[in-house]
Amino acid sequence: MEEKKKSIWKFGTREVVFAAIGAALYAVLGYATNMLQLPGAGNVSIRPAVVIPMFFGIAFGPIVGFISGFVGNILADLLSGWGFWFWWDLGNGLMGLVPGLFAGMIVDYKAVKSLLLGELSVILGSGVGMGVASLSEMWVSGADMNTVIFANFIPSFVSNIVNGLILLPILMVAYAAVVQRSGRS
């Protein structure tokens, strides 16, 4: 039987709900872990929840991934009372969008190739997302490149890829079981 090609840019009713679920999950889990600030790193906290936009991107496409990260980060900051930091929200959105670009290549979520693609997407997504957010600090705070790299980019990038590399394969394998049991994709 010919495999049906996934359209990664579709944004219908299911995608609206998945994006909302992803954003709410990211907000709730982000809120629960917002208290863990990295010492000496401006605006950065350790959030195992960063895997949520990455996973929702991989599973449901780049738009769902972007909204999960972007809206989820806004809501987590609103819940924590940390204000609204647009450039970091955008960075979190990109962290979900980039893995979403790999969604079309992944059919079997527990296959080794899929897991490796997922891990690659974590690194690229964190690099692009945190890169954009960190570089915007040059514009807002007047920080120079060294400051941006060492105070913003490296702490957030390293923290996010460690969380993503460990937790994304676990979520992908669990989702493969859900897909297999329910017959949905």
Binding site: T13, I21, N163, I166, I170, A174, R184
Partner: peptide, 29 residues
């Protein structure tokens, strides 16, 4: 690494239940 992996028993059921439950919401919509 162990500390992050320790989040999985919490993260996986919550995420998967939310995804399964969201089908009902999408159908209702």
């Amino acid at each position: 690494f162990k500390k992050i992996a320790r989040i999985a028993p919490l993260l996986v059921p919550v995420t998967m239940n939310a995804i399964i439950g969201s089908e009902d919401v999408a159908n209702a919509m």
